[in-house]
Every structure is written in structure tokens, then in C-alpha cells.
Simulated assay, not measured.
Amino acid sequence: MQNMKMGAIAGNTGLRLLGDALGDITGHSMPFRAEQVEQPAVLTRMVNEGALPVLGQPVAITGIHRQAIPAVSSNCQNLVLTIEQSGQAPLPDSVFVKLPMESLLTRWFMNVISSWRLESHFFRHVASGLPLRTPVTFATAWQGSRFFLLQENLRADPDVTLFTNLDMIRGPTLEQARHCLDAFARLHAFHYGMKPDQQLRILPLDYHPFLSPTMGVVSRNLNRLALQPCMKKRPGEIPAELAAAYRLTLTNWDALLTHWFSGPLSLLHGDSHLGNFFATGEKMGMLDWQAAHWGKGMRDVLYFLVDALPAEVLAAHEAELVQYYVESRARYGEPIDSGQAWQDYRSFSFHALMTIVVSIGFGALNEEQDALMLEILRRAVAASERLDYAGWLHDFLHR
């Protein structure tokens, strides 16, 4: 039954891609290639049709120059454009534009997991109300299998520091890590305790990567199918005991979902690695909200710490950093139990592992990131062993 559902989802996604390809012939599809969007008339139309209230008035773009700034992404084309405008120029002189990657396989995969649709919804309806900085979004739209975002160019702000792949391999300082944990605490406290129907009016369940009718099927099957090819590509990296715990988790997936997503929930970033932060002084903002969902704050915390810090550094400071987050939650008015927080932290070590297993198992979407992917896999394996995820799982299943 699960395979039939997955096949139907994959087939429907293929039909959307085909429909957009046919729409390219008739001119009804959303442009998604860089050379199209770099035409002033095309970008003007896209911005005005997808405008958010912050824009204030229609734009008239008369000239575009693409800056030679690398903006690496595993699933999108990221453009930094200098623009000329007539009239009062409601847009800044340079903007950041996010578009689908041209690779057909990548576009199919990102539509199967609905990440682009989620991000467009998030920046249109959710981002402006958050207690931490997100990129100012001037326009966004989703049509068929395609989307676009037009945002402020954070590189143009001299007070902003962005993090690179090298920073992710090297890891942040402990002070920077605490700033990130403080940002999580503010975010996670903001909606905590809201009634479920209130939360779902902000971000509907249809976008949830594990609980939505569509993504629930997709995530279960991706996790199940990814382990073997990941272990084949990276032999010896995942110990046999941990691989057995991985399989046992999928066997008991429904019970674990109930545990992970029950009780008071917070709005999570969902892909909370260092590269999705940016610093303004001591304050951290976040970008790339393609996996936002309702869950327990410890998921963001675990995912961030495991991905961001070299295993030996995290091992030496892990308890201290988790406790710092717990204390920060209390400072922001929504305290959580320290003992339960640690057990949740242990349980979510599987989430860091499964995410990188899926990324590698289905071919990291950008070959340039292979070295980073391998390092993150090793950090996730080390965390799962250090935190004894297999032991936590045994206790959970036999309590």
C-alpha cells in the first residue's frame, strides 16, 4: 500500500512537471531559467504578480546585471542581481532571487517533498511575524511545479555575516553556538502552548514533512529506501548496531511519530544547520525555511549542534550547550523540563542521522557538497553512538 501511494505521488509530480513543460510552449508557465528571469520585463511581471505587502507599490525594472557572486545551493538556482528601476524604486538596488534548479531530477525530487511550495507559503504568510530576523521578502509565488523568491540581498548589509560550507566543516565558536541556541529559544517559545488549531492556521499540516497525508508517505519511504544505497556509497561509516537501530525505527515509525510530535509544540526551522543562520552582531537570523514544521524544539537543537560542531568539540560541551538552551527557554517565558529535554535530545539523534542518510543515499543533490556530506554523516553517527540512540529506542519500545 505504501509503495502504491508513493508511486501515485511520484506520478502526480511528473504530471505537474510535464504540464509546466507544455506551458512553456504556450507561455502560461512560470519562468524558471536564469536567462529568462534576468529579462527586465519578465522579472517585473513576476514581482508584481507575487508581491508581498512590504513592497508597497508596483515595480518597473528597466535593467538587470547578474553579480558574479557564488550562492551555492543543493536544490536551487540562487541569483544576486543588480537592478535599475524607473519611478520611486521600491526595491533595493540589489536583490537575491531563488529559482528552481534546472536539473529535471532535482525539480522532480523537490516537488515530491513539497519544499519549494512550503518555503513560498512560509515567506508569504509566516516569516514577518517571527521573533527573529528572516530575509525581507518582496515577492514570492508558486505555480505548478515552480516557484520563486525575491528577497533582500543580505550580502549588501555590512552588518550581516553569512556562513559558508567551510564554516560548517570548521564549526562555529562556542559563543556563536550559544547565540544560535538563543535564537532557537526565542523562536520555540513564541508559539509554544498555542492550541493546535491556532498553530495550523499559521502553518497548515499539509506542509508537515512527517505528518501530512502526502509527506508522511514520502518521508517514511525515503528513510526506508535510503539506508542501503548510503551504506553502499559510504561503506564502513554506519556501524551494524546503528544500522539495525535505524531499521527498527522504521519498523516502529508510527509509534515514534506519535512520541516525537505529541505534547506542546513549537514552530521549528527544520533544517537548522549553521549554513542557514546569519549573524547581525550577536543576534542570529535564519534563512532557507524549506522544512519548517510544528515539533519539539529539541529537534532543531540536536540537528544544529550535531551538524555544526566537530564530534570531539560537541562531546566535550554537549551537556552544557543543551542546558544553555533549556535555561534560555525559561528566560523567554516558556520553560521546559531539563530531564525530559535531554531524553528528547537523545531521541532526535535519529533525525540528524536519517537526514544525512537520505541526502547521501539518493545522491547528494550537489556533488560539490560531497566532502561536507561525509563529515556530517560522521558527526551524526558519532552523536547517535555517544547518545546511545539504540539504547533509548530499546527503552522506548519496552516501557
Rank of each mutant, 00 (worst) to 15 (best):
V42G: 01
H317V: 08
A156C: 01
R133Q: 15
S266F: 06
T82N: 15
V322F: 12
V72R: 12
F210P: 01
A383Q: 09
R133T: 13
V54E: 06
Q85G: 05
Q36C: 02
R186K: 13
L305Y: 11
M46E: 04
Q39E: 14
L99R: 14
F350W: 15
E318C: 12
M110S: 15
L99K: 07
E367P: 11
D288W: 07
V54L: 11
D271R: 00
P92S: 12
A364L: 13
T140W: 07
L187G: 08
G361Q: 02
Q88D: 14
L205S: 04
D344E: 15
T249K: 08
C76L: 08
S266Q: 08
T355S: 11
M354H: 14
L149P: 02
A244G: 04
M298H: 03
S359D: 05
K283R: 15
A71P: 01
G333A: 09
D271V: 01
H125M: 00
E102V: 14
I64C: 08
P213R: 09
L22H: 05
L274E: 09
M4G: 07
L393R: 10
V136R: 09
F138Q: 02
L166G: 07
G391H: 05
F163A: 00
M101Q: 12
R66N: 11
I64F: 10
G193K: 06
Q198T: 09
T280F: 00
N221S: 13
W142P: 00
Q199E: 05
G263K: 06
G14N: 06
E35Y: 14
H208E: 06
A41L: 04
D182E: 13
V59G: 10
G23A: 07
V97R: 05
S219F: 04
V59D: 00
T164A: 02
E375H: 07
F147E: 04
D254S: 15
I9A: 03
T214P: 00
D337V: 09
V306M: 08
N252A: 10
M231S: 12
D157K: 10
D20C: 06
A279N: 04
I356Q: 12
A319Q: 14
H293Y: 08
A21Q: 11
N12P: 00
D167Y: 01
N221V: 13
L305S: 08
A383R: 11
T82I: 02
